[in-house]
């Protein structure tokens, strides 16, 4: 690769297509650690575990009665949580493939779940406009706390080491800071479908249904950058940072994968990007370690693993 000052080009070579899902794939997550595996969940009510390298489906986790909308993996890769239309968070044991717990309490479908760092707490955000924090240590059936500030469905949650960020359809990104004991709500103005903070938690990337992805300053609430060009008005298209947080990647509703330079917000070449999925790209996730790999899941029922051409 030629030495260039700009950010690394996006991995655009299709490595493997995972297409065992029947119907739309709503979420695709890398496993933790070296991230050799992918967990996908879709409309066909199954969570599937794939080998990212070979593309083999290792396991299908079937217990959900409705579509799956969110997955989160614990740091030790031993368990994961999934949620969806059946209004309860399912906790799975990866090895045995059974649900260890089912956390019921939400009144609507659950759009987002996320573990905290040591997987002792799982946060779930639901259509009922609440975020519920469930204790996984104790066997209580009631959540530790219910965050009811959102005025509309909570679409996305990220649990950091000492904070929790929730994006809601009411156009707010709410940061619950445990250490400060303070809630900072930033109005984006349009339904927020995904929030991804940077590693240092100083900024976060908020995707909203007005064709915009905004890089917000977490401490002041100011907008640092605005990424546009893609089409995202009605579906949740999760954006993410590229390798080293130098780029911003997002799949749009036309099946194109867009990439922007984080600093100057220019669309990386090719512009416009080619259409790689037949339908809306629901989830884009970059490999946490490997710089040349990412996955996209789409409503056309496929999950695609992308790699750099030279790898």
């Amino acid at each position: 690769m030629a030495p260039s000052r700009g950010p690394q080009a996006l991995a655009r070579r299709l490595h493997i297509t995972l297409e065992n899902h029947k119907g739309s794939v709503n979420v695709a997550r890398y496993s933790k650690g070296s991230a050799n595996y992918i967990l996908t969940g879709g409309q066909d009510r199954t969570v599937r575990l794939w080998n990212a390298n070979s593309g083999a489906e290792i396991k299908a986790f079937a217990a959900h009665g409705y579509e799956i909308l969110s997955i989160t993996v614990s740091q030790d890769n031993a368990k994961f949580a999934s949620s969806g239309g059946d209004r309860s968070v399912f906790l799975w044991d990866v090895a045995t493939g059974v649900t260890t717990r089912r956390l019921a309490g939400h009144m609507g479908k659950i759009f987002a779940v996320d573990f905290n760092e040591d997987a002792t707490v799982v946060a779930s955000g639901s259509f009922d406009s609440t975020v519920r924090l469930w204790d996984l240590r104790a066997q209580t059936r009631t959540p530790i706390q219910i965050l009811e500030e959102a005025r509309d469905a909570v679409q996305t949650i990220h649990v950091g080491p000492t904070y929790l960020i929730a994006g809601s359809v009411d156009g707010h990104v709410r940061t619950y800071d445990l250490r400060m004991g303070e809630l900072r709500s930033d109005l984006i103005g349009h339904p927020v479908t995904s929030v991804v903070p940077t590693q240092d938690a100083q900024t976060y990337l908020a995707t909203s249904l007005d064709d915009h992805i905004r890089l917000m300053d977490a401490s002041t609430g100011k907008m640092l950058n605005d990424f546009t060009g893609h089409a995202n008005e009605s579906y949740r298209c999760r954006a993410c940072f590229g390798h080293g947080e130098a780029t911003v990647i997002c799949g749009d509703e036309h099946g194109q994968i867009w990439a922007w330079d984080l600093v100057d917000a220019h669309v990386l070449q090719p512009n416009p990007p080619p259409k790689v999925h037949n339908k809306v790209i629901t989830w884009t996730e970059h490999h946490p370690v490997n710089d040349g790999e990412m996955i996209t899941s789409s409503a056309d029922g496929t999950v695609k693993v992308w790699r750099h051409a030279d790898k």
Binding site: Q145, E182, L183, S185, D186, L187, G221
Partner: peptide, 9 residues
């Protein structure tokens, strides 16, 4: 656009 209020975890 920012609104900060105390929150008790």
């Amino acid at each position: 656009t920012r609104e900060t209020k105390p929150w008790q975890p």
